[in-house]
Design a protein around this nucleic acid. Sequence first.
RNA 1: GGACCCUUAGCUCAGUUGGCUAGAGCGCUUCCUUGACGUGGAAGAGGUCAGAGGUUCAAGUCCUCUAGGGUCCACCA
Length: 851
Amino acid sequence: MDLPKVYNPKDNEAKIYDLWELSGCFKPSGKGKTFSMVLPPNNANGNPHMGHAYTLAIHDIAMRYHRMKGEKVLFIPGTDHAGFETQVVFERQLEKEGKSRFDFNREELYSLIYDFVQMNKINTENNLKKFGGSFDWSTNIFSLDKKVVDSAYSRFKKMWDQGLIYRGERLVNYCTFHGTGFADYEVEFKEEQGHLWYINYPVTNSKEFIKIATTRPETLLGDTAVAVNPKDKRFEGLIGKTVKLPITGREVPIIADEFVDPKFGTGAVKITPAHDPNDYEAAQRHSLPFITVIDLTGKITHEMPEDFRGLDVVHARKKVVEAIDSLGLLSKTEDYRHSVGHCYKCKTIIQPLLKEQWFIDMKPLAKEAIKVLEDKKIKFYPDSKRNQLIGYLNQLRDWNISRQISWGIPIPAFQNEENPDDWIFSDRVGQELIEVDNKTFRRDPDVFDTWFSSSSWPYVALDFPNGQNFNDFYPLSLMDTGGEILFPWVSRMIMLSLYETGQIPFKEVYIHGYVLAEDGAKMSKSLGNVINPMEVLDKYGSDALRMGMIAGRVAGVNRGYDTRKVEDARNFCNKIWNIARFCQDKAITIDIDTPEPESIADNWILNRLESVQNSIDNDLGNYLFGEAYEKLYHFIWDDFADWYIEASKVHQNDSVLGYTLKKCLQMLHPYAPFLTEAIWQSFMANTKQSILAITILKKGIKADASKSKEFDTLINQVIEIRNISNNLKLKMKTLNIASSSQDEMHNKLLIKLARINKITNNKIYEGIKLTTFEEPALIVVDQKTKLDYSNNLDAKIKERETSLHNLEQRISNSSYLEKAPKQLVQDTKNNIDSIKQELTSLKQDLNQINN
RNA sequence: GGACCCUUAGCUCAGUUGGCUAGAGCGCUUCCUUGACGUGGAAGAGGUCAGAGGUUCAAGUCCUCUAGGGUCCACCA
C-alpha cells in the first residue's frame, strides 16, 4: 500500500502547493461564466491572525468551488502598506530597541519601514500559500505598486479639479501622541467618568451672571461666545449682551442658537470653536472668531495667559478650575459620565484641533452609493449590513485624508513658498521643492490615509481602465471582509469605484464575523488569548484549520475559535485518507465518469451522492459554507464510509466505488484542497497527469430508485437488529425469516452489517419480532431474554401511542383538513396508518412474550 | 440617544421561504482489538428552543413586550 496509515499534512502541503503553482493552474481559463474575488489586502506589518485564516478559507472555498464548476475564475492576492497602522507597529519595535521615530528624519524612517514591510510582505505571501489560497500570483498587488499610487494621484487630481477635494482649516481629530490627524472612523469613543463644572460668567456691566456647564473648563480660555436656545425664556433679556470671561476678562457675546438643548446643564453653553465640533459649526453660523487654546503637542499655547502656558490639558484643567474657584465663580461640580474620543491605537484622548488638511467632500459620493444600496444593486450577506451601511453613509461628514506621518503615499500637492494659499498638483513627490512658472513650491509633508489608496482596490487590481482583467471580471463577483472594515473600506470602495468606473465594484458582499478567542472575548495581545493560526496549521494541517474555521459559522456573526472543531476536521481528513487507502488496497481506479451500479447499495450511494451534491450546490450558491461542509462531512463519513464501504466488503463494485471516491474528492476539494489533491495525485500517479483543482465537477447521476429504496429498508433493518442486540447484549444472533423469498445478497448484507450468525427459515415463531421486515421476521432468543425485552417493548409502544395520539388530534381538526396542503394531510394519514400497523405488531409481540 | 445581533442538549453552535418525532461536533454511558481508519466502529442518555402575550389549522421560525449578554453608530456641552 502506497499511503501511510495516518494522514500527515506536512508530507504533502508544500509539495502540493508547488505542483499547483508550477502548473499555473490558478490562472483564469475557460470561456464560461466568470467569478472573481480580490483578497482584502493583508497588512504587511506582522504575523497572521485567525481572522486571516478564516477570511482566506471563505475566499478560497468560493474560488475553488466556482473554478470546479468550469467557470473562468480570477483570484487576486495582495498586501497593504497600511500607513498609520504599520508606523505604529514599527514604532513599537523601535521602542523595544530604545529608539523613537524622532531619531530619524522622514526619509530615513520611510526607508526603514519600507524594509520592514518588504520582509513582512514576503512572509504574508508565504502564509497565504500555506493556507492554500488558489491565487493567480501574477496578479499579486501591493498598495505601493506604481499602479496603485498612480491611481491615487490621478483620482486626487480629478477630485481636486472638480472641487471634491479641498484644503482647509477644519476641526481635525488629532492624536497628540502620534502627532497626526485622523478620519472619524479612527476615533474610538469610550464612556468615561468625568465632571461637569458649573461656572458663572459675569454679564458685562451688570451684577448678573449667566451660568454655563462644561466638561472641559480649560477651553474657556478660548471661548468666543456663550450660546442659549432662542426659545428659552430664562435668557430672553440676555441675548445680544456680552459676558466678561473669567480669567482672561475677554468680552464675548451671548448668542442664540437652536442647537442648544435647554434641558441640558444650565441651558447655556460656552462656545469654543477651535476645540469642539458643535461649537465650530455654531461659530461658522455666527461668524465668531476661533481661538486656539491647545497646540499640536497637547499643551496650552503661548498666546494664553502666562499661568497656563505649556501646561498639558489635565493640569491646565485643574488650574483653571482653581482659578475660577478663587474668583468665586465656580458654582458647583458634579460627577458626570460622558463619552470621550480616544486614539484607537494608543488610547490618548483625541483633541479636536484646528488644522489645515486635505478633505474630500463626501456628500455627492455618498449620495451615489446610497442609491445603489437602496436599489439593492449590491447584495449583502447578511442583508442587515446593507442598511447599516446606508445609515453610515447618511451621516458621513467630510473625510480628512491627510496624515502627518512619514509612512504612506505622499500627497502630490505643493504650496507656493510666497503665497500659502496657492497650492498646485504635481506628482514630482520625490522632490521637496519644485519650480513652476518661476515660483518655488514646497511639497506637502503629509501622506494619504491608507483607505484613500485601498479604496481603489477592486478596479486597480484589475488594471482599470484598459486591462484585460478589468474587461473580463469587473465588477467583482464577491467581496468578503470582516465587519470592522465595513465602514472605512467597503463604503469607500463603493463610493470611489462608482466615482472612477461608473460601476459598482462588486455584486455581492459577504460580511463574516470575528474569530473570537475560545473564551468568547476578543483576541488581543494584551489579554494574552491570541491563537496563532500558523501553530494550529502546523499541528493539525491547513485543511483541518480551514474546515475547523468554517464549521458552524454563519455570515455576520462573531464566534469563538474552537479547537474541538479543528480536531474534528483533522479526524475527518484522516477518515477520507483511509477511505482512499481502502480503495487503493482494492486496486480501484477513480478516473470514472460512468459508474455501473448493480446492487441495491450501488444504486443507493449514487442517489445519495446526487442529492447531496445538489444540496451542497444550492448551499454554496448562497454562501452557506458551514452547512455545505456539514452535509459533505456526513455524506462521506456516514453514507460512504459507514454504509457503502461496509457493504462493499460483501460485494464490491469497482466503478461505483471509484466514482464515488472521485466525486467526494472533488466536492471536498474546496474545503480540504491539500488532502484531496494528495489523494488524487496518488491515484493518478500511474495513469494520466491531472490536477484535481482544475477538474470539472459534473452533475450527479440518478440511479434506480426502487433498488436504492430497498437499501434504505435494509439500513432500517440493520439498525433495528443492532439496537435489540445491543440492548440485550446478544453475542450470537440468529435471524429467522418466515419465508425464504428474500434476496440472497440482501441476506448477506444483513449478516455482515447487523452481525448475524445465520439466517434461518423456520416456521416456528419464537423470539423477538422485528418491525422493519415485511414478512414475519424475528431474532431467535430464549424465553428469559424475551422477558427482559418486554420492558423495552412497553416503552416503545407508549412512545408510538403518543405519536399516534398527536397525529390523530391533528387530523380531527377540521381547519387543518381545510387549510393545510393536501399532500401534508395525506402524509399525516399515511403516517397514522403505518403507526397503527406497527402498534398492532408490537402488541402482538408483547402478548406472545407474556403468554 | 439610535441601530443591529445573540439567548436551542453538559460545552460550542446549526436550524434557508412557518409543516409532522428540533439537529451537529465535542463531552458522557454501554459495548466492539471485524482484515481502510482507535484521529476507528455500534448502540444510547440528554432539550417545556430565555420568559410572557399575540397571529396561524400549524411557531424554535412571524409580530409585540419583558429579562439577560454582546456589537456598532452618534459632535449633547
